[in-house]
C-alpha cells in the first residue's frame, strides 16, 4: 500500500503524456498525408502546409507538460527524495491528469482532420491561409482549457 499513491501518480502522468501524444501523432499524421498530397502537385506550399500540420502536435506537448508537473510534484524528478503520497492524494493527481489525457487525445484527432480540410482549402485558395489557420486553432481552445484545469487541479492537491 505504501507505493500505491506514487503508482497512481505515475499512472496519471503516463496517461496524460501517452493519450495526448497518441492523439497528436494521429492528428499530425492525418494532416501530414493531406499535406503530402498537396505538395506532390505544388511543392511551393511547404511552409503553409507545415504550419497547419504542426497545429495538432501541441496536445502532445501539453500532455508531456502535465506529466512533468505531476512527477515533479511528488519529487520523482531532480534526484531528491520523493514525497510520501497517500492513496487519495495519488488518486487526486491521477484524476487531475485525465482532462489533458482525454481532451488532448480527442481534440488532437479533430484538429488533425480540420487541418487536413484546411490544407485542401489552401491547395485551391492559397490567399485564404489566414482563415485556414484560424479554423484548426479553434479546436485548440478546448485542449488549452483542459490543460488549465489539469494545472489548477494539480496545484490544488496538498501533499
Amino acid at each position: 500500500m505504501e507505493f500505491l499513491g506514487i503508482a497512481l501518480v505515475i499512472c496519471g502522468a503516463a496517461l496524460a503524456a501517452g493519450f495526448a501524444g497518441v492523439g497528436s501523432a494521429i492528428g499530425v499524421g492525418i494532416a501530414g498525408q493531406c499535406g503530402a498530397g498537396v505538395m506532390t502537385e505544388d511543392p511551393g506550399k511547404f511552409g503553409l502546409v507545415l504550419l497547419l500540420q504542426a497545429l495538432p502536435g501541441t496536445q502532445g506537448i501539453y500532455g508531456l507538460l502535465i506529466a512533468f508537473v505531476a512527477i515533479l510534484k511528488v519529487g520523482l524528478l531532480g534526484g531528491g527524495t520523493s514525497v510520501d503520497v497517500g492513496v487519495f492524494q495519488g488518486l487526486g493527481i491521477l484524476f487531475a491528469c485525465l482532462p489533458t489525457a482525454i481532451v488532448g487525445f480527442i481534440s488532437a484527432i479533430a484538429q488533425g482532420k480540420t487541418s487536413a480540410a484546411c490544407i485542401q482549402m489552401i491547395a485551391k485558395r492559397p490567399e485564404e491561409t489566414g482563415k485556414a489557420v484560424i479554423l484548426p486553432a479553434m479546436v485548440e481552445t478546448y485542449a488549452v482549457l483542459a490543460l488549465l484545469l489539469s494545472i489548477i487541479l494539480l496545484n490544488g492537491i496538498q501533499l
Binding site: C34, A36, G37, E41, A116, Q120, A123, K124
Partner: peptide
C-alpha cells in the same frame, strides 16, 4: 486524405 488533397491541388 492524400488522394483527395492531391486532386484538390490538381483542380487548380
Amino acid at each position: 486524405g492524400y488522394a483527395v488533397s492531391r486532386l484538390r491541388a490538381m483542380e487548380s
